[in-house]
Amino acid sequence: MSARAEFDEVDMAILRALQEDGGRSAKAVAQLVGLSQPACWRRIRRLEEEGVIRGRRVRLDLRRLGYEVTVFLGVKLAARGRASLEDFERAVTAIPEVQLVQHVLGVYDYRLKVVARDLADFERILRRRILTLPGVGEVESNVLLSEEKSTPGLS
């Protein structure tokens, strides 16, 4: 498999349909994209085997579950070196409220997405969990006010 494979319009339509609703059956996707169910199933299977489709997820409304605050953190590690990166990554991924961990290039080493029930809960998570992680030096917090667009894949 090449790092970047070529996909035709039907493949792209299938991906958009599944991105919109990952629970759609091959039959439902086939009807949307104008294929037979077996042909659509084969294409979906190929896209999965090639790693283009990496799974299907349920998108939850976190506010309805009581998570009212989303905070993006920029984390700069104090110590450099591969061991400190691995220790930090192992520890941060174990925190349930941390939904996203991205190793980035720029001012900060990592970008995190953290959810909390309220600001007091976020402060507890920050003080007791994030700031005590191995290698953490500097942290910048940005509280999400509103989300204008959220497109997890193709638009």
Rank of each mutant, 00 (worst) to 15 (best):
L65C: 01
L85M: 08
E49Q: 05
V92L: 14
G51C: 10
T70V: 14
R57Q: 07
Y67L: 02
L62Q: 03
E89T: 01
R63N: 08
L65P: 00
K76S: 15
V58A: 06
G81D: 11
R59V: 12
I53D: 03
A79I: 14
G74R: 03
V92F: 11
G66T: 15
R64M: 14
A83E: 11
A91Y: 15
G55V: 12
K76I: 12
K76T: 12
V75R: 03
V92N: 06
R80D: 11
V75W: 12
R59P: 00
R82Q: 13
V52N: 00
A79G: 00
A78Q: 13
E48Q: 11
V92Y: 07
V69Y: 08
R56Q: 04
V69D: 03
A91M: 09
T93K: 14
R54I: 15
A91F: 14
R63I: 06
F88R: 00
V58S: 01
L77K: 01
T70W: 14
G55Q: 13
R46W: 13
R54D: 10
G74H: 05
L62W: 12
R64C: 05
E89M: 03
R46V: 04
R80P: 00
R63F: 15
V71N: 01
L47C: 10
G55W: 13
A94T: 02
R57K: 10
L85T: 06
V92M: 13
T93V: 12
A94I: 07
R46M: 10
G55I: 14
E68S: 07
G81V: 15
E86C: 04
R59I: 12
V71C: 03
A83G: 00
L77Y: 11
V75S: 08
V71Q: 06
A91C: 09
E89Q: 05
L47H: 11
L60Q: 08
L65N: 01
V75E: 02
S84E: 09
R45E: 04
R63C: 05
R82C: 05
V58D: 00
A78W: 15
L77E: 02
V58I: 03
A83V: 13
L85K: 11
R80K: 06
D87H: 00
F88W: 13
R80G: 04
R82S: 06
T70Q: 15
A94M: 08
R46Y: 14
V71I: 11
L77V: 10
L47Q: 10
R64D: 12
V58Y: 10
R54N: 08
I53Y: 12
R82K: 13
K76M: 14
V75D: 00
E86H: 12
D61A: 05
E89S: 08
V52G: 06
L65S: 00
R56W: 12
G66H: 12
E48T: 06
R56A: 02
F72W: 07
E49V: 01
F72E: 02
T93I: 09
K76N: 09
R90K: 15
G81R: 12
